[in-house]
Design a protein around this nucleic acid. Structure first.
Lengths: 256, 256
DNA sequence: TCCCTCAATTAACCAGAATCAAGGTTAGGG
DNA sequence: CCCTAACCTTGATTCTGGTTAATTGAGGGA
């Protein structure tokens, strides 16, 4: 039985843990979750309620495949907590991770709008809580609300932009530079600054998965971390990477 | 002085060449061109006229850089004739071609919607005729017409889909397989079937550029074409590739 | 506690593709 | 018709990163 905590849910004001609150009406709960979906920010209670019809809450265990390449698409997913990977799989069992989805992020929209089957597979990297938002309510809302369309367009553009940047790093940077870039980006997002001014980054999932995300084998990834350690730039403690000299790390990296 | 013919314009019913027609009013001409823009298909004359305000026609010579990485974006471009490449350039002068844009295709939308500077550069591969559609008229029309939004969403989704497929081929296929895949795709789009049932593909631009599009050096590209020729699968005549055995070519390629 | 499994590391070896360095070919342009 | 500048090909060499395989280490039950 998976035990699922939900950090994303904590974003809303939480009641003190020792004061049990009466369980809210199920739809009420759903609406409260929906209010945190970036796409739905600023929506009124009435609008959220309309959405709630098409929303299904899912709790899945680590390893669960949400969909395979080729499956039909009936909506999009939002991660409340946990992580999901999107990946290609080759016939020989090789795998290339396209993206690691974190709480608050969604995936599968583009395929939904194209009315085509999925081109990648999605698998839970940890026990997860997700929302599935049905195509129908999204399409209804699009007809009704031009602003909603604008948000969707903004989201898709953003995704496209990131993907182009990825293609750039894959083809213009060495494996080492990709890793350095990754560490620096992670640091900006959620780096913990310790006492001595040295910064630490916690990898969101296994090194093998991150290696694949960066288009490397886990062996090569391991070697490069070793190199960086030798060079005195980082030190590694399991999934925690301490950045010893962030300035030197920045200048060591070849940008394009 | 560049001489520019415009194959894309020929899509509209052409008057017999030896019957000179009176030159149409400039706006009239523009509207006729706009009617061929995929995004504007099905638009009324009035709607097209509204768009025409924000449209600028450009004729550029081969080699012209339309924008650099970092330039601000004021709208998007549509290629009427000729080809444009989108590419990253590294500080050391290396280049990676992201996309080769052909007549009827547009580019730069995503960046426009994000209100960020360009992340790639665009350069004319041949003498070109283009339309530049200003951000303002696009945004106005989006507020006015939900269907227009839908078309934009469809277009962005399509682009995203292609880009993900590209990432897949870059990371899951060998150089050889990428080239074979490219040839097969080109054949489907515009393959000329000759007398003996053998099919020919004409490369849209220089081999070096296509090599970069496929994430290869031009040397490697050349070698692989040679290999495929040795194997009796194709024969090469300048920019024309004859596919001698399309079935064998299909089965030789490792898909994922 | 003892397995058992999965993740990570390490090392030796190998291969695909890039780089470097000449030539050769082709297509315009005078 | 030749000259020049791209463009392309070819060969030799190097290198990045992948493959294979053996080993260690860290939870996680029973």
């Amino acid at each position: 039985m998976p035990v699922i905590e939900c950090p994303f849910e904590l974003h809303r004001p939480a009641a003190p843990a020792d004061t049990p609150t009466p369980a809210p009406h199920p739809d009420d709960r759903l609406c409260r979750l929906l209010a945190h979906v970036p796409l739905l920010s600023g929506f009124s209670a009435a609008e959220l309620a309309r959405f709630a019809h098409g929303v299904r809450e899912q709790a899945v265990e680590r390893g669960t495949v949400l969909f395979h390449r080729g499956d039909p698409c009936h909506g999009f997913h939002l991660v409340l907590c946990g992580q999901v990977k999107l990946a290609f799989t080759s016939s020989e069992g090789h795998e290339k991770v396209i993206e690691i989805i974190r709480p608050g992020q969604s995936f599968g929209e583009a395929v939904m709008f194209m009315e085509k089957p999925y081109v990648v597979m999605a698998q839970a990297l940890t026990d997860c809580k997700l929302l599935h938002i049905a195509k129908s309510v999204v399409f209804d809302e699009m007809d009704r609300d031009p602003l909603f369309c604008r948000k969707i367009i903004a989201g898709l553009s953003q995704r496209l932009h990131q993907l182009i940047a990825d293609v750039g790093t894959y083809s213009m940077q060495s494996g080492r530079d990709r890793i350095v870039g990754y560490l620096l980006r992670e640091e900006e997002l959620g780096g913990e600054t310790g006492s001595s001014g040295r910064v630490s980054v916690r990898l969101p999932t296994s090194k093998g998965t991150i290696a694949s995300r960066l288009n490397l084998t886990q062996e090569h990834f391991s070697r490069i971390l070793h190199e960086l350690t030798e060079a005195g730039l980082i030190s590694v403690e399991g999934r925690v990477i301490h950045i010893l000299d962030i300035e030197k790390l920045r200048t060591t990296q070849a940008r394009f």
